[in-house]
Design a protein around this nucleic acid. Structure first.
Length: 536
DNA sequence: AACTGAAACAACCGCCATCTA
DNA sequence: CTAGATGGCGGTTGTTTCAGT
């Protein structure tokens, strides 16, 4: 084992070792830290060391970092090698300063997910977590020194002026000035090279994507060895399970989510490799693609609060250390969200969804175990309402968890866009860009939603996907990251539908909790419009 | 030109999760 | 089941660079 601790323990030892190789002018840890008792070098890397490491990676690929030292004689511990490779030698690394768009993206992402540098890095191709972290730390210092807020209002949501509207960080991101000014175009281009369109899913939507999602997509598209990709996917699925199994994530949901956990266990234990391959194509749509109110997930004890410029309110009192992306505070008083006076304006949430959806009344508390059930109920109610015209009576027929998830996940991605009739919503953009990609005309896709029932009809999956095979044929196989979404509701009639659906759930499961939490910010009246609960 | 402080960058450290024998 | 090995992540620190005086 690379004795990291030894490194630390030996720092007191003489740093210059007489037996340094000619090219090694750095510091040394004196005690045997490698398997063969070789003193490991510390400090800046030399070009020779870089060359050795790069050569090793060329020959053996990434991983097995400790074998670098064994096989090459490079006197660096595996950790150091991995770090050097990841932060400096990887060919896909982007050199140069962060662009303004990237910086804005980091700021916004930090408001949403906190110090998840690695995750941010996955969303900024070519950038490393270290780079992002350094930027943030530097920026934090600078802003604090200047007495400026860490999260400028413009980053948090300029649409906050509309009190009935939720913050639209992601909306901005994909629809607004940022994109128009070339937001992350470079990064997006790179993402597209990997086979997916970041704007199609919106940046925000991927914010909670398991780390492995993008990696797997990239790796698969780059022809990396399957086992490695699978390992990454496994990690993602395990993350999902961890999060779901974590009571701290959303204490009240535990019991309800238990079955989901079981589902994940099935997914991860029993399913064939094809499932993983589907995972690989499964770019994780954010559980809360409506993260137009990213802070809706983080009001009490949010990162914006805990890391940002806002003094801790009473909501923060009960926050746990875990960096939960949403509703972390068990003491959250949801009724205060609207009226809370000590909350900055853009944190004020108009929880009442349009359309008299009585979510809160149906469910005493969002934290209650009944939330998912309420979701099911609500979803189904609306769905039934569609079938029964203006009938508003609820449908109490049983809906499977899968059905519920299917009915909710896609809606998360689209409902708010429909609601805002944004022609440039991720969904519509998806259509636009898909048309560009595939060469299909827009007519092949559901017309843009405008509002109300039109919107619902417009995005009716059945109408949206009249030509699943054609679409599939245009996509480069499973490498299309949006294929999973497509497979989930576009190709839901295909034999693989169930499998894909499960994969989709698994992939987005990591932040299932935030997804659930975010439901209250979702326009409920439009939720089932995207994907109707399959008829039983 | 020299000095100084801030910013940027690089690397290490400790902890944790996962894997594997 | 367990302990060691390994890899990953976030926090922190040290060094270098740069701009202002």
């Amino acid at each position: 084992m690379c004795s990291v601790k030894n490194d630390g323990d030996t720092e007191k030892l003489p740093k210059e070792q007489p037996d340094s190789s000619p090219n090694d002018e750095g510091n040394w840890s004196g005690s045997p830290t490698a398997g063969e008792g070789v003193a490991l070098k510390k400090g800046p890397w030399t070009s020779t060391e870089d060359a050795i490491l790069m050569d090793f990676v060329k020959k053996h690929g990434e991983g097995n970092w400790n074998s670098v030292q064994r096989n090459t004689g490079l006197r660096r511990c595996g950790k150091s090698c991995r770090l050097r490779w990841a932060n400096h030698l990887r060919p896909e690394l982007k050199k140069g300063a962060l662009t303004r768009e990237e910086e804005e993206f980091i700021i916004q992402m930090h408001a949403k997910i906190g110090n998840k540098w690695a995750r941010m890095a996955t969303l900024l191709p070519g950038r490393t977590d270290n780079e992002i972290k350094n930027f943030w730390n530097t920026r934090t210092k600078r802003m604090q020194r200047a007495g400026l807020p860490l999260y400028p209002a413009s980053s948090i949501g300029s649409e906050a002026s509309n009190e009935n509207q939720l913050i639209q960080i992601d909306g901005e991101f994909c629809n607004g000035d940022i994109e128009n000014s070339g937001v992350l175009h470079e990064a997006m281009n790179e993402m597209q090279e990997f086979g997916f369109d970041p704007c199609k899913t919106t940046i925000g939507q991927v914010s909670y994507a398991p780390l492995s999602d993008i990696h797997s997509t990239c790796l698969l598209s780059q022809g990396l060895e399957w086992p490695y990709t699978r390992s990454l996917l496994n990690q993602g699925v395990n993350d999902i399970k961890r999060n779901i199994e974590s009571e701290t994530c959303l204490p009240g949901y535990h019991s309800s989510l238990g079955s989901i956990v079981s589902t994940f266990k099935e997914l991860t234990s029993g399913h064939s490799e094809s499932m993983y391959r589907n995972l690989g194509l499964g770019y994780s749509y954010d559980a809360d693609p409506d993260m137009k109110n990213p802070l809706s997930c983080s009001i009490p004890g949010s990162h914006a609060l805990s890391h940002g410029n806002f003094s801790a309110s009473r909501h923060s009192a009960g926050t746990v250390k875990l960096e939960l992306p949403s509703l972390q505070c068990p003491d959250t008083n949801y009724s205060n969200w609207i009226t809370c006076s000590d909350t900055p304006p853009y944190y004020i949430h108009a929880q009442s969804p349009p359309g008299n959806v009585s979510f809160m009344s149906d469910c005493a508390s969002p934290r209650s175990n009944g939330l998912l059930e309420a979701l099911v109920h609500e979803s189904h109610t609306i769905n039934c309402g569609k079938k029964q015209s203006s009938e508003k009576s609820s449908c109490s027929s049983a809906i499977t968890l899968n059905d519920m998830m299917e009915s909710t996940t896609v809606n998360f991605c689209t409902a708010e866009w429909e609601e805002t009739s944004d022609q440039r919503s991720p969904f519509s953009q998806s259509v636009d860009e898909h048309a560009q990609i595939t060469g299909n005309s827009l007519e092949e896709f559901p017309p843009k939603a405008t509002s109300g029932s039109d919107a619902k009809m417009a995005v009716e999956p059945d109408s949206a996907v009249s030509t699943p095979d054609k679409q599939a044929s245009h996509w480069p196989g499973f490498l299309r990251p949006d294929a999973l979404l497509g497979s989930n509701w576009i190709l839901r009639d295909s034999p693989r539908t169930k499998e894909n659906s499960d994969s989709f759930l698994a992939l987005q499961g990591e932040d299932l909790c935030p997804a659930v939490v975010s439901l209250d910010s979702c326009p409920w009246n439009s939720m089932p419009s995207i994907y109707q609960v399959p008829e039983h």
